[in-house]
Amino acid sequence: MTINEQQDAIISDFEMFTDWMDKYEYIIQLGKDLPALDEQYKVDDNLIRGCQSKVWLHADYKDGKLFFSADSDALITKGLVSLVIQALDGQPAKDIATAELYFVEKIGLKSHLSPTRSNGLLAMIKQIKMYAVAYQLKSSQN
């Protein structure tokens, strides 16, 4: 599936929810289900500081594709991190670098991408894109 197909799948998952509680319970569950980040990656180098919650992000590169694992100290942020990974995991670096993540707005959580919220999600997406650009450069040099 392409990034946009994965995003569309997320959006249709969220269409089932009729009230905010169902939606948030789902996000919280995603946060709880996100595979734990290996302790060796939970280091300051991988830490993305939002003003309020923290996100740790680790990327692996295999055959031109990027794979992510992550964690956050806040559960709702962690759920959203899980959704971002769902949308981008295993995709080619060049697609990730140019991806537009419209699903966050479509599922009614646009405020999480506002710089004023500073919960780490926006910074995380930026970091993911920087990884993607860096890997692209590296592979074009090889």
Partner: peptide, 21 residues
């Protein structure tokens, strides 16, 4: 051990404005 922002966001959904952080 709940993160303050989680609690704050769920309160906001209920129309309750508190500060977290």
């Amino acid at each position: 051990n709940h993160h303050p922002t989680d609690v704050g966001e769920l309160l906001d959904q209920q129309g309750i404005a508190v500060r977290t952080g």
